[in-house]
Structure formats: structure tokens, C-alpha cells
Amino acid sequence: MDQGGGFEAVFLDPVGQAVQQRWADAAMTVAFEDLPPVSAFPVVPGRRWGPGLWWSATTGRHVAAGSNAMRAQLMVLDRDADVTGLAGRPVRLLWRNPRGEVRSWVPQLFARRADATALLADCPSHPDAGGERAKNAAEAVAQACADIGWTYRRLPPLDDVLAANLKWLAGYRHPRNAGQPGLMAAVVEAFTRPRPLIEGTEAVGDPIEVLPCVFHALWHGRLTAGLDTPLHERLLIGPQGWSDPGKTGGAG
């Protein structure tokens, strides 16, 4: 490894063999969004939620998730229209500290953006998670990303209400919830003018059939609502790009 402090990347090739190469070269040539985890997520005894898989509506594939906090951030990124690919722990970064000692870190999340740049991220359950080692690694990984025009972030935990709303909408992210041909167009048309959720739904048809399509449209951004308030039947729903989604409808 370069004694001068250059970064290197370790990842798995298509047959599962570890490859190590210069970070700047790997970033230009490797589709990290298509790679499996370079190392498994740890299983921590006593935790209520362990490693699992998240089905991504963006890619139609599963993404490895190591914690509940990471799954919450995957929900946010999976709804982001600028994100084109997602992967869990696809790359390990290596570097030398000022004393010449080799250090390494595996960011939890990789997100490819539409402009071909990328986000590397960690998803701590609280700001001080990981201690001093995580803080030092964050500084190094942020520099490695800045060197190539990418971004690194320690993503703060989501607000409880937002997380609950996203979890609900995520249950309708699969294309099957778009319903019968023509239903999505009718749903979008019903909310051209912002109106309470239940009113627009009933204007289209039977709520049992229509609500999954409405939630699917909200997940994919075809409709807009303020998600900082718990979802309820009087929540105002508006069209894509609606600029004032923070208000709710009256009791009615």
C-alpha cells in the first residue's frame, strides 16, 4: 500500500474472489451497486433486529441490510429519483494513518446516482455510535470520496413518524400495487387538486382496491404528501411536485 496515504479498495469479483486495487481506479471502473457485501454484517447478540435483505423498488433486487437504522435509510434512498443503484457493504477502504499504520473501514451503504457519482454512507443508530474509531474512519472515508467527486455521510436516524410512514408506504412499493391498467392514471387525476386521502380515493372507486395504488403512487413520487404527520384518512394528498404538502385536512 502507498506509504503516502493513498486509498485502496477491496471488493469481491463475480466469482467471489477478493480483489484489491487503487481506490481511484476502482471507483471509475467497478459497478459497486452490483456487488455482494465484501464482508458479512455482524450479528450482535441481544439486538431485536439483525441482518436481512431489503427488496429495492429501484433495482428490483435485494440489498443486504445490517440493522434497523440501515433499513430505514434504504427506504429513503429507494424513494430518491436520483438514485439508480443500491448495495450493502460492497467495498472496504484501506489507508495508512499519519503513523504509517494500515486502517480499514467498510461503509454500510452504497448508492449510485444518476450522474454516475455515488454516496457511501454509514447508518448509526445514534450520533456517537462506533466511538472514536468510527469518527476517525468517517474523516478518512469522506476524504477518499471527496478525492474522486463522491460523497460520504453518516446518516442521522430518521424521525419516528417519518420512519413509520415510510415503512407503511414501503409495503406498497412493489409494481403489483399499481393495480389494473388505467387505475394509476385515475388515481393521479383524482389528486390533481390537493384533497384529503379518503376523498380522492373514494372518487376513484372502492377504497379496498384503490388505496394500495394511492400508497404505491406516494412511494414512487407520483403523488405528494407531508410525511412528518402520521398517515390518516384526512391527510392532504397532492400531485407530483406539490410544494405545500405539510397541511392536513379537517376532521370532515
Score class of each variant (00 low, 15 high):
1 M>E: 12
3 Q>E: 15
4 G>W: 10
6 G>P: 04
8 E>L: 08
18 A>G: 09
22 R>G: 10
27 A>L: 12
29 T>V: 13
30 V>C: 12
33 E>K: 04
36 P>K: 11
38 V>T: 14
42 P>D: 03
47 R>W: 06
59 T>E: 09
61 R>K: 15
76 V>D: 03
76 V>N: 08
77 L>W: 07
80 D>C: 10
86 L>V: 05
89 R>A: 10
93 L>V: 14
97 N>E: 14
98 P>V: 10
99 R>D: 15
100 G>K: 05
101 E>Q: 15
125 S>P: 00
126 H>C: 09
129 A>C: 09
131 G>V: 04
133 R>I: 11
137 A>L: 05
140 A>D: 10
146 A>K: 13
153 R>F: 06
164 A>R: 05
165 N>Q: 08
166 L>A: 04
176 R>S: 13
176 R>M: 13
185 A>H: 06
189 E>Y: 00
193 R>Q: 05
196 P>T: 07
197 L>M: 14
200 G>L: 00
200 G>I: 02
203 A>P: 05
203 A>F: 07
207 P>L: 02
208 I>K: 14
214 V>P: 02
215 F>T: 01
218 L>H: 03
220 H>G: 05
220 H>E: 04
224 T>P: 01
225 A>G: 02
226 G>H: 04
230 P>I: 04
231 L>S: 03
240 Q>M: 09
241 G>Q: 03
